[in-house]
Simulated assay, not measured.
Amino acid sequence: MQVNTQQDPFKEMRPYNDREVEAVLQNLLYDNELISAITHYQFPSLPGWLAKFLKPFVRIGLARELGDIQSVKQFQQAIAKYMAKMIARTTTRLTCSGMENLEGDEAYLFVSNHRDIAMDPAFVNWTHYQQDLPTVRVAIGDNLLSKPYISDLMRLNKSFIVNRSAKGPREMMAAVTQLSAYIDHSIQEGESVWIAQREGRAKDGDDKTDPALLKMFYVSQRKQRNFPEAVKRLNIVPVSISYEFDPCDRAKAIELAAREREGVYEKGEHEDIESIVQGITGFKGAVHIHFGDVIVNDYEAPELLAAELDRQIHQNYFLHPSNYIAAGLLEEATEEQQAVFEKRFEGLGSRESEIMRNIYANPVFNHESKKV
């Protein structure tokens, strides 16, 4: 949907606001691709001709579900019941720590390790929702928004678009500056933000902050203030998200092994979407989210700040039996837990198995290396 708001420098990237919700939802109801996708998801085994027959009924059901929604909060409340069902079906436990140190009336920039495309920010938002705190704005790359209806749905859910497809130095600098300005703008107007500590997931389980990301935070502020001042006004909080089981672990191991063998890995056309679906619907076991300490010290360089973010993310990462087993610390797990973990490797080659074991072991090694 094209936004016609006047004098809005962020209109193409920002989440939709309450005034826009009703019109966006109406457009979605008449998006044939979306209706087809929902029909296929609900009835995956139906032949095409019968699915086509059911599409009008799916549209009517969707209209009934969305018809009274007129605000972003109402849209997220509608999503919440599906989130609750997903959590009940795909996790054994969802726990959170560190939120007691956050002020309810403050806005924060949550810089998080990144394991799952959709679920990392979704779980952060869920913890806020459960505490009756405002949900956060979520940074999402435009490479994941292959369809207009996906972009609309994400922007209804408080996501903003990171332009990763920019080409050429000038266009790339403009995109980085706009992103930097929007993040600062969000924090200053009281809206918290979630962003991954680096571009893309840590597919090898080795969570490391990219200093380039931290430089981006500063780009739009460089004429007004120095780096430490720009950092402090963002209220940066490191976030550690840990999954007992990663629904995409096998796919990650296969991809990384292919990169080793061939030097390159060609993604399938819909591979990112398939990863999102697998991450949402796949079994995760126990999940824990920890909110670290607000960054208050002066860090003169992005590399120094990255080191502090890594220290907190690694030290506060909740280690599951699966992590200890992968690291060879079998005394930390029962025989039953070991058997469940080893079953995940069935059908993998030796190198894929080794890589997948490292995916789970690396958080243990990082945690141990950051002990004071």
Rank of each mutant, 00 (worst) to 15 (best):
Q197M: 05
V277N: 13
S180G: 05
V176I: 05
L256C: 07
K252G: 06
M86L: 10
E331R: 14
A307H: 08
F217Y: 03
S71K: 10
S36T: 12
S146Y: 04
L54E: 03
I236A: 01
K208Q: 03
D105Q: 15
E171L: 13
P121H: 09
A166T: 04
Q224H: 10
P169D: 14
H185Q: 09
V264M: 10
Q131F: 03
A175R: 11
F53A: 14
S112Y: 06
E12L: 14
E274P: 02
T91E: 12
R198W: 00
H40E: 03
P247L: 09
L28H: 00
S353T: 15
V296C: 11
E271R: 15
D210G: 04
K215C: 04
H367G: 13
T90R: 15
Y317H: 12
R225G: 06
G285F: 07
M13W: 02
A23W: 05
G292L: 01
Q188F: 02
D293R: 13
L330W: 02
R351P: 10
E274T: 02
H114I: 09
L348E: 10
D18T: 05
A181F: 02
H40N: 08
R225S: 09
R311T: 11
P134Q: 09
Y82L: 09
L62K: 09
K284F: 03
Q188I: 00
S192Q: 03
A202F: 02
G61D: 08
D8M: 13
A196S: 09
M13G: 11
G347E: 06
A339Q: 14
N125D: 11
